[in-house]
Amino acid sequence: MYMDQLRKDDFEIVGVKIEDTEKISQPSLSYWKDALNRFRKNKLAMVGLVILILLIFMAIFGPLISGYDYRTNDLANKNLPPSAEHWFGTDELGRDVFTRTWEGARISIFIGIAAALIDLTIGVLWGGIAGYKGGRVDEIMMRIADILYGIPYLLVVILLMVVFGQSVGTMILAMTITGWVNMARIVRGQFLLLKEQEYVLAARTLGASTRRIMAKHLVPNAMGPILVTMTLTIPSAIFTEAFLSFLGLGLNPPLASWGTMASDGLPALRFYPWRLLFPATFICLTIFAFNVIGDGLRDALDPRLRK
């Protein structure tokens, strides 16, 4: 018979090979690597990142390269337009606007980052404990947060600045005293979802302590929203600083922040527009950079939200 001449080896499977279906052809990507790839593809966010890096670089080295000091008055050379000697011109006391701009960058960015970090710490602890413990603890903690959340942010900041005087410390305190509530609410929401997951149950069955579960399982998994909220807190703090300076509640001279420079430049707008132009441009650029980075991070870390 014809069939008898066929042996098993004569056949070869053309389609799916069982052993190949399990083969991993590409290196496996962790969640963070995957997110990084997505973030890199976001052009706007990359533009923001480049701007931010440039701004931070200039904040560190800018005051050094101009050859001027940010606080030395030079009344013979006041209100000069931008030129080869004074790249951004000079202000009403003859101080170099270029140097002051980057001194201001240091203070503005410092205030932004410090406020964000404090919000982060209090918010994660408060929201984390409330979300994880649940029940009565959650109820009480979140009611307190709700009451604080209802208090208008800027009014509190203004009030504290009026009473406690104008310094970088007061400003950061004023911004964080109710600012952390937002972070706490987000962390709590995340923890409420995450703590019902099987791996948390598994960890608990294995005898992991609450602290370990929070630090090793819950916080890392809630990191995406936490990071995004933090990135978006920084521009709002920078904005608040500038806003306060505009109300005359900013830092005392000769300290320069972008807010105080812009507010000093305002009355001179008609004749010396560059005194407002430079700090204002950099306030906008910084807020822009942090905002698009924040948006980019949100899209990258949570692809489900991507439109």
């Binding site: 706007l44 521009p235 904005f239 500038a242 806003f243 505009f246 812009a262 305002l266 707008l269 008609r270 527009p273 407002l276 204002a280 306030i283 906008c284 650029l285 807020i287 822009f288 905002n291 698009v292």
Partner: peptide, 18 residues
């Protein structure tokens, strides 16, 4: 929209004024 979010209201005000 991104510009609107990045430019604080008081800068927008001075800009419009100018």
């Amino acid at each position: 929209a991104v510009l609107g979010i990045s430019v604080p209201s008081f800068i927008m005000a001075t800009l419009l004024q100018y």
